[in-house]
Simulated assay, not measured.
Amino acid sequence: MRLRLSPAAALSLALLTVSSASAQVGGNLAATLVQPALSSFKASGNLLTDASSGATITLTPKGSYLASADLRLPGGDPVQAGKLLNALTGQDFAQGLSDFLKRPDVQAKLPQGLSVAAETFDLKVQQQPDQSLTLAVSLHQLAGFGAVPSTRILGDPAAPIVVRMYSDLQCPYCQKAELEAVPTVIRNLKPQKDVRFEFHPFPLEQLHPNARPAAEAAACAEKQGKFWAFKDALFRRADWQGMANPSVIFQSLAVSVGAKLQPYRDCMADRGGKQSVDEGLAEAVRLGLNATPTVYVNGYRVSNPYDAASYQALIEFVRAK
C-alpha cells in the first residue's frame, strides 16, 4: 500500500529544503559512514551492524554514491529509526517519523507494509512477524515526462541526462533561480556532452496574472528561434509584473532580441502560443507539480534550485555506475 502524507504530516516528517548535495542517500557514500549516529555500527562490506541493538543497515552503492539503504530494527523503536534516517538522508525525520508510526491508521497497515512519499525521498516501512521494523529509503524518481520542442532544449537533444525546469515567468522564485543558478548550470553544459537542459512552461495563473501572457509571448518569440533570449531578457526585469497589460514590454523585448515585429504581432493576435502553454500546464498537472521553480535531473528533484551545485550533484549521481 502506498500512502501520501497530508500537508501537515509531510511537513513534520520531512523538511526537504536543503541541497541534495548534503543528503546522504543520493550523496557521497563515504560521508554516510562517518555520521555520528552510525558510530556504533561495524561495517562488513555494505552491511552495517550494531551489536548492542542488533540493528542492521544494508547500503546499496552507486559508484561512490549511496543509492539506497535498508534498515532492520529488531526492537522496532521508531525513535531509533528516525535518528538513523536522519543520518542516512541529512534531513530531520526523527520526531516526525516517530509521530507518524504511532498513528492508529498507520499501525494497522504496518504488518502489510506501506510506502510513504516524502517529496525528495521514498520510504517503505513494514513491521515483520517478529515485531522488528524494516525501512527502505531511496531518492524519489518521477517518471512520465513529456517531450519539448528542440527550441526549448540546450545541449544535445539526445543527451541521456536531462535537467528539466518547470518555471513561471512571473514567479519571483523562478527569477531568483534564473539569476543565481541557471547561468552556471547552462555554462557547465558545454563540456558535459551527456547533459541537456529543458524549459517547461508552468504559469501559475491564480497567483500571477501576467504569467500566461508572458508564457504565450515567449512561445511566439520561440517560433522565431528567440525563446532563450526572450526568456532571459524577461527575467532580467520586473517592471512588467504588476502591469495591467504588459504587452508593449513583451513586444519591445521580442524585437530587442531579434524577433521580427510583424510575425510576432500576428502570433500574439492569433494566440499562437496558447497551445504550447496549455500543453505545459497539462503536463505539470499530470505530474502532480504545484510550485515553481521545480527542477528534475532524470526524475530526481533538485531540492535547492537556487544553487548550481545541487544540479551538478544530481547529474553526478545519475552519471555514476
Rank of each mutant, 00 (worst) to 15 (best):
R2V: 14
P7R: 05
A9K: 15
L11G: 14
L13N: 07
L16H: 09
T17N: 15
A31N: 14
A37E: 12
S53W: 06
A67F: 03
A69F: 10
L85C: 05
L85M: 10
L88C: 13
F93E: 06
G96L: 09
F100A: 13
F100N: 13
A108K: 05
Q112R: 10
V137A: 15
S138E: 13
S138H: 14
H140Q: 12
G146I: 09
S150P: 02
S150H: 14
T151R: 15
R152C: 11
L154G: 03
R164F: 06
D168F: 03
D168G: 00
L169V: 00
P172L: 00
C174P: 04
K176H: 14
A181L: 02
N188A: 15
L189Q: 02
L189I: 03
P203K: 00
E205P: 01
P209C: 06
E216V: 04
A217V: 02
G225E: 05
W228D: 01
A229Q: 14
F230K: 00
F235L: 01
R236L: 04
Q241A: 15
F250G: 09
Q251A: 15
V257S: 08
Q262D: 12
R265M: 08
R271V: 01
L281H: 03
A282L: 07
V295D: 00
D307L: 14
A313K: 09
F317K: 03
R319V: 09
